[in-house]
Amino acid sequence: MDLSPDQSIYFCMVLTLKVAGIATLVAASMALGLAWFMARGRFPAKGWVDALCALPLVLPPTVIGYCLILLVGRRGALGSWLAEAGITLIFSWQGAVVAATVVIFPLSYRATRAALESVDHTLENAARTLGATEWQVLCRVSLPLAWRGILAGISLAFARGMGEFGATLMIAGNLPGRTQTLALAIYDAFQAGNDEKALALVLLTSALCVALLLLAEGLAARRLAASGA
C-alpha cells in the first residue's frame, strides 16, 4: 500500500486518536469499576490487586508486549479462543488498542481510586441515611465530587495512550497504513532519514497533546464556575 505523504500523516493521526480514544474509554470504565469496588471492599488480597494494577507502570513496555503475545498471540493462552471468535489482535489496530489499554490502565486506575477515596465518607454516609442505594451514592455524591481528579487521570491516560510505542510495536507491529500510529511513524521516518517528515509528525503530535490538555483544563474551569464551588 503506497500512500502519498499527506495521506499517510492524516492516516497516522486518525489511527492514533482512534486507538488512544478507544483504549482510554475501555481503561477508564474498567478503572472506575475496580476503584469503586476496591474503595469499599475489605479483603486480604487488596494489596496484591493494587500491586498487580500498578505493574504496567514499572515494567518495560517490551515486557508488557511480550506478555500480551503470550496471552493473545496465535499460540497464546487465549489465542485459539479469539481465533474461533474471528478476532485477530496480532498485527491489527485492535491489537494496538489492547496494548494501549494495558499500558494506560494504571494511570486511570490510580487517579480514579485516589479521587474516590478523597471524597468525605461522611457525605456518602449522609446519602445512605437519606435512602440512597450504593449506585445512587456513586452517581449523585461520589462522582460529582471526584470527577475532576478522575478527568485528570483520564486526560493523562489519553495522552500516554497517544504516545504508546513499545508494547504497540511488539503486538501490532509497524505497518504503514494499517497499524502505524504517530509515535511509530516518527521512529520510522527518523530511521529512514526523512527528517522533514519526522519533524512534521513531532510538531503535529505536540500540537495535539497541547490542544487536549487545554481542552481538559477548560472543561474543568467551566464546570467549576457552573457549580459555584
Binding site: 468525605d120 461522611t122 457525605l123 454516609n125 449522609a126 446519602a127 445512605r128 441515611t129 437519606l130 435512602g131 440512597a132 442505594t133 455524591v141 460529582p144 465530587l145 457549580s227 464551588a229
Partner: peptide
Amino acid sequence: LPARKRNIGYLFQDYALFPH
C-alpha cells in the same frame, strides 16, 4: 436492615451538606 431502609434521620456533627 441497610441504612437506606431504616428511615432514620441523621444530623451529622459537621452537617455533611453536599457541597455540589
